[in-house]
Amino acid sequence: MIDRPLRNPAIIWREEDELRDAAMAMLERGEDASGEGVMILLCAGVMHQLNMLGAEIWKRCDGEHTVDAIAAGLAEVFDAEPDEIAADVREFVSDMQRRGWLAE
């Protein structure tokens, strides 16, 4: 796995503020927001959506943060167990690598 993931520069992306606010409101109400898209990615003409966790990982894929550093940062943001979120981050980074969403 890539140690310091970097977003593929050919991908067009944007966080949707209104959708993010709505997902945040769900979290504050104690609801599950994992199915709520807050970010859009346009890859080779196909649009994808990321939920809040995916979006936060994507934003940190700057070629400087290590996978472990991303996981540690997100554990604080989402008030989650570090080991659990580290597994999610690794799985998502592997998936992005397979899809070509990360720079070589």
Partner: peptide, 12 residues
């Protein structure tokens, strides 16, 4: 995830 109208176009 649910379909939605983007806040603005991605591409002009």
């Amino acid at each position: 995830m649910k379909p939605f109208v983007l806040s603005a176009p991605l591409i002009v």
